[in-house]
Computed example of a mutant assay.
Amino acid sequence: MKSVNVVLVLLCAILPVALSFIDGLVPNGDFEEGPKPWQMHGTEVVDPHSVPHWELSGFVEYIKSGQKQGDMILPVPKGHFALRLGNEASIKTKVQVAKGLFYSLSFGAARTCAQQEQLNLSVSPNSEPKDWGMLPMQTMYSTEGWDSFSWGFLAESNEVEVIFHHPQTQKDQACGPIIDVVALKSFTLPKKSRDILQNGNFEEGPYVLPNTSWGILIPPNVEDDHSALVGWMVESLKAVRYIDSDHFAVPEGKRAVELVAGRESAVAQVVKTVPGKDYDLEFYVGDARNMCEGSMLVEVNASNSTFYVPYESKGKGGSKLAVLRLKAETGRTRIRFLSSYYHMKSDFSGSLCGPVVDGVRLVRVPHA
């Protein structure tokens, strides 16, 4: 019996076997279990099955925290190890999920070369016309040297294959993004309430990695068939940041959205309304307590009208409640939030930031 157990352990160590999954890191999603010395050539991984639960192809490196490339220290988002995807490299893993549920895939990524880098993501099986997402990585938002991203998908099987692919070819074949801390979270649809909006408090969103202080970027919907923020669309050229109360100032509850890229960073939702009826749109505007200072201005587009809500930020946290009265023009009303101004943190890091929006409610006004 002992010999059989040994064989099973060895098989699990070398094959990307699908395992039962709950919200959090996928099996070996932090890559702390890595290849043996004889499965590597320098930092390059030469055995495609040497990273437990993952299968590798192309030029993939196993990076250790503190490792240098010339004078530059390669950033490892969390823990001690990560993978770098070089020329035409890809990594994939299989995970058991619940068919028919929506999921968000969260992961940390860092750019390591001066050139623009991009990363393709796919989850299969997938019947959507566009079954992959492309994340351009020329803009980094955090001061730590890496960002965390999220990507939403609908599970069309009880087992899915998650693939990260770096499609570019550079003169330096090792040049490419570093990937770490890969996690999944299933979505729960918000319960119905007197609020017409779905998930107005933003509590249902991507998995936030424990003990990380840089939030999660949610890409625009042109890169994502299913938003990783339940009920909302990211209608902009750049991402919005999903933040948590453990590391940021959040006006209400545990989660909120930071509009980090000015007019290029917007969230929207389409709701059912009654033409000709009045509605109150309530929401909080504040700052994330992340040294984002200055005169902020949140622009709200709703029912063919545009509203502006100013907020003076000292970068130390705080918020105010805004209440707007609007009249529905049609049976479907699009409500959209964006930042009128661009902001950078006052720590001279050049990192983008912006106003926080939270606690959004749309309530029909009763008439006497």
Rank of each mutant, 00 (worst) to 15 (best):
T212Q: 14
T212Y: 02
S213G: 01
S213M: 01
S213F: 15
W214V: 12
W214I: 12
W214G: 03
G215S: 02
G215F: 08
G215T: 05
I216F: 00
I216K: 01
L217M: 14
L217A: 11
I218M: 08
I218P: 02
I218Y: 10
P219S: 09
P219G: 07
P219Y: 07
P219F: 01
P219L: 01
P220R: 03
N221H: 11
N221T: 12
N221E: 08
V222S: 13
E223K: 11
E223R: 15
D224T: 15
D224H: 01
D224A: 10
D224E: 15
D224I: 04
D225K: 12
D225A: 15
D225E: 13
D225N: 12
H226F: 15
H226D: 02
H226V: 15
H226T: 02
S227A: 07
S227M: 03
S227Y: 08
S227L: 03
A228T: 05
A228M: 01
L229K: 04
L229R: 04
L229Y: 08
V230D: 01
V230F: 15
V230H: 06
V230I: 13
V230W: 15
V230L: 06
V230A: 09
G231L: 09
G231H: 09
G231E: 08
W232S: 06
M233G: 00
M233R: 13
V234T: 14
V234C: 04
V234G: 06
V234Y: 12
V234S: 07
E235R: 12
E235M: 09
S236M: 10
L237M: 10
L237I: 11
L237S: 13
K238P: 00
K238Q: 07
A239P: 01
A239I: 02
A239Q: 11
R241P: 00
R241N: 03
Y242Q: 05
I243V: 14
I243M: 02
I243D: 00
I243T: 03
D244V: 04
D244I: 02
S245R: 05
S245L: 00
S245T: 07
D246C: 05
D246Y: 09
D246F: 10
D246G: 09
H247M: 05
H247I: 00
H247D: 08
F248W: 06
F248T: 03
A249C: 10
A249S: 15
A249N: 13
